[in-house]
Design a protein around this nucleic acid. Structure first.
Length: 270
DNA sequence: AAATATACCTGACTGC
DNA sequence: TGCAGTCAGGTATATT
């Protein structure tokens, strides 16, 4: 499931193949994603050159001359380059055919992703009210701490709230809280500034490390199977409920927080 | 305003 | 082997 590091890995992987490329046509085989793919996407994009590939939160912004394709990979989506003529599989829903002879292929078994067209993506309803990028300068201890005051929700769903900070999904929220030694069930409003300082550092570190590791598979990713590599990352708690804590050896516990499964160590996290 | 629930979708897995 | 049931998860949106 693409989290921010995978989206960034995807961005880095596809960007060099897209920059200044002309779009020849867009083939939509199944436009029934989270919202319908615009009917006129082919008309909008064909003939245009791609000028930039940016990321905001987990959204990819593929900027062409006259507008921007906003793309989200949802839970199971991927974008990769394939030679034109490569037969599409069951879940290959969209091909953006380029003058280079390659196609940017969107695959998404669960169809939780989206593709929309916008003339001003950062003002788009979906992006306008988002919190700071976790790896950017606007993500500060002061800001996070201030937002937490008065919040009764547990700290894990709090840091997964896109209005607080973007791009921290279930995997990395779990890992960052473990690294910071904070119990994910703790009330956000009652966590000290000192502990938030630790958490900010760990969120940054875990995401940065994951992006680095995604980078190691970049080459394979573009040419190959489209699986960037967070699986290579050492995960301390995510998906390890009931198994021994890798720090203290005690059994990792599970809890449901904000409808999301959360694994933590009752000893290392308080 | 904030907290909570719901919906979307399908592959992987479990139990019979 | 097959079938029915359960779970996972990002996030917008509806409801309380």
């Amino acid at each position: 499931m693409p989290e921010l590091p995978e989206v960034e890995t995807t961005r880095r992987g596809i960007e060099p193949h897209l920059l200044d490329q002309q779009v020849e046509r867009v083939v939509v085989r199944n436009g029934r994603l989270r919202w319908p793919v615009p009917e006129d996407l082919d008309v909008r994009l064909s003939g245009q050159h791609i000028r930039k590939v940016e990321r905001r939160a987990k959204y990819l912004l593929i900027q062409a001359d006259a507008g921007t394709l906003i793309c989200h990979l949802g839970m199971s989506g991927s974008l990769r380059l394939v030679p034109q003529g490569e037969p599409p599989g069951k879940h290959d829903h969209v091909d953006i055919e380029l003058a280079s002879g390659q196609s940017l292929r969107y695959t998404d078994p669960r169809r939780f992703g989206l593709m929309l067209w916008s003339h001003d993506p950062l003002s788009h309803k979906l992006l306008a009210r988002m919190g700071p990028e976790p790896l950017g300068d606007a993500f500060t201890v002061d800001d996070l701490f201030a937002k937490s005051r008065g919040r009764k929700t547990a700290i894990k769903p709090f840091i997964m709230d896109n209005a607080v900070v973007v791009g921290v999904g279930n995997i990395y929220a779990s890992e960052a809280l473990f690294a910071a030694g904070i119990d994910p069930r703790r009330e956000a409003g009652s966590v000290s500034k000192q502990r938030y300082a630790r958490l900010v550092g760990e969120i940054r570190a875990v995401l940065a490390r994951a992006i680095e590791q995604g980078g190691t598979t970049l080459k394979d990713f573009v040419g190959g199977d489209g699986k960037p590599g967070y699986f290579q990352q050492q995960l301390f708690v995510y998906g390890r409920g009931g198994l021994p804590c890798l720090k203290c050896g005690r059994e990792l516990r599970e809890a449901k927080l904000g409808q999301r499964s959360s694994v933590f160590c009752g000893h290392c996290q308080s």
